[in-house]
Nucleic acid binder design. Structure first.
Lengths: 360, 360
DNA sequence: TTGTAAGCGTTATCAG
DNA sequence: CTGATAACGCTTACAA
């Protein structure tokens, strides 16, 4: 359409300079606010740029600025509900600045991950955000890279790297805290797959908090099984049948908790009056529609992604940080832990409560 | 570390040429396989490149090739479980080629969407994939853009654009087909939010298929309500209480179906013996853990993303296509529709069926 | 077949 | 304060 020899046809700084009646160099300075340019001149250039709706070519720019305004987000498994919020937070944080995000997914394949890494590097990203699939530590990729890398969700196994991961240990502690605050003392813990550090850390946190009260989990601390409602049901069933007394059921995930709730209903245990139930992850879809709505621990994944992004930007800027940062979590109370144990909410008496144990 | 005046320190084509003992131009030709280069020379260059682990600077490349090897993925709402598979499919399809994906999320804000669009364009993407939040048609963004745009999930409201969206109408038809094949004839439909075209299309498809058999939905075709288990339960309850006879319950989503299953259990209706239940979306997490496991319609979102990506690549290549393409869907049978109506469990006769109705 | 040189759009240096 | 001019790394006529 355009008589030029080459070029994209987009308006260039030269066009702007021409319209503004200044030299290319001056136009550049005016646009970037650097160097001394008379206010009037700058305005003229800016106006010209606006009229032509000029957008600087980022490639020409990147060609001599050593930084490209792009970061790579390398996910291990995009098809994972936990990475979504992380992605969102990160994208948001970057977008607020002016860096944009190049996405690459490894599909849980380390060969493919290597390949994607190469591709991202070839695109000259300024930094890398590596988003894991679980909270289990993962192999570091940092060796030999000249760009900063930040790991999110799955921390790097190299302590010299910087990682962000949710604080599952504290999540366990806070959960117990919450249950204690509801007057529960006989807490059972149904857990997920033991190969997940999330499962291990959550129960460890819970145990630790209980120990401070001189308590321990009833029914044992090793009720591991597949994540999922089915195991939640089965495990709850055995627990009930075993005759172990418990007034709270802490479940390693909301899914497990859903199964537990179903089973408790069938066993005619009232929630929360007989048994308080809570989960982890605060997956609204499951938690809010549960009967009763499920108290859960929000892992603040979006915030985690945001923090990681911010820190990556900082690292690109030159700062160097290392170690594993554990993102804050918080309990979101709903009805499943809604009542103080043995109140006469429904109509019963009995104040066998042990509130005096409270430490604060 | 390096005495150069500027530059990133990365090895350049000039380095390669030097090592190979040829001119810059020859090196370039050798690398790109164009023009006539003696095989031996090319090999020498390739070797040199390998030794230096040379990666061409994409910016320098883009600067004179009019195409950048990057597409923009503009999502309306990343925090949506339906976009994940689409993203995955698209990323995969692009990755297979050598285009990479720039991600931008609009957070359901049209102002922000405009902004992100601008940013993507400023980055000189070769094309745009616009991923919607629902399957409702959305405002076209194509006007005035010089890069091709393909819409996924939410189709564009401009028929001149190219859109990919799941075939909800056919999903409704196939669902009914499946239920009919199980001997069910009194089918009730519980639906989600009527403002979703998915809800409308699914029930329309179901109705259409039933009509072919001279049937219609029992309990009416307007049981719309909020997506979610709660509505599934409530709606099922009224249905049961209303005394309407039904041998199948088709639910507008797996979530609704989960609610329905719960309610049916409480109403002592056996699934699938008394009532077959099925949903849409085939959300494994819900469907597989349901009691019994839930038959559902798989919307093939990943494939949808892949197709859209492929078509975008084609469009960048110069082809022009328009209109709305509806992605194929398929029923995934599980136990909730597992039995032929009125068998007696183990393996009986009873051919009360109406198989002869089949049109083909 | 290979090399020279002219861009691509910007920024940075250094004179005016 | 402004303007030539030389990079940045690569592709591509055009010569040799």
């Amino acid at each position: 359409m355009d008589g030029r020899k080459r070029g994209t046809g987009a308006t260039t700084l030269t066009d702007v300079a021409q319209l503004a009646g200044v030299s290319l160099a001056t136009a550049s300075k005016a646009m970037n606010g650097v160097s001394q340019v008379r206010a009037e001149t700058r305005q003229r250039v800016l106006d010209a740029a606006a009229t032509l709706s000029f957008t600087p070519n980022p490639f020409a720019k990147a060609l001599n600025s050593a930084t490209t305004g792009t970061i790579g987000m390398l996910t291990q498994d995009l098809d994972n509900r936990f990475v979504l919020p992380v992605l969102l937070g990160a994208e948001d944080a970057f977008g607020a600045g002016s860096t944009s995000v190049l996405l690459a997914d490894a599909r849980s394949d380390s060969i493919r991950e290597r390949h994607q890494l190469g591709m991202l590097l070839a695109k000259r990203v300024d930094g890398l955000l590596v988003v894991g699939r679980t909270t289990n530590p993962r192999a570091s990729l940092t060796a030999g890279l000249k760009v900063p890398v930040v790991y999110v969700y799955a921390p790097s196994d190299d302590p010299a790297d910087l990682s962000f991961t949710p604080d599952n240990f504290d999540a366990g502690r806070q959960a117990v805290d919450h249950l204690l605050s509801r007057g529960r003392r006989r807490i059972a813990f149904i857990n997920g797959d033991p190969s997940y550090s999330a499962a291990q850390d959550r129960v460890a946190g819970a145990t630790s908090r209980l120990a401070e009260e001189g308590l321990s989990l009833v029914g044992g601390a090793d009720l591991f099984g597949p994540w999922g409602e089915r195991w939640g049901r089965r495990c709850t069933e055995s627990l009930v049948e075993s005759g172990v007394q418990f007034d709270a059921l802490l479940c390693g995930s909301d899914q497990l908790a859903r199964g537990a709730l179903d089973q408790l209903r069938e066993s005619r245990r009232s929630v929360p009056d007989d048994v308080a139930v809570m989960g982890f992850d605060n997956w609204d879809l499951l938690a809010e529609e549960a009967r009763p709505p499920l108290t859960s621990v929000e892992m603040n994944l979006e915030q985690l992604g945001r923090s990681a992004a911010l820190e990556l930007v900082a690292a690109i800027g030159g700062t160097t940080a290392r170690g594993v940062r554990r993102g804050a979590v918080r309990v979101v109370p709903r009805e499943s832990t809604g009542s103080w144990l043995h109140t006469d909410g429904g109509g019963t008496s009995a104040d066998t409560g042990t509130r005096e144990t409270g430490t604060s």
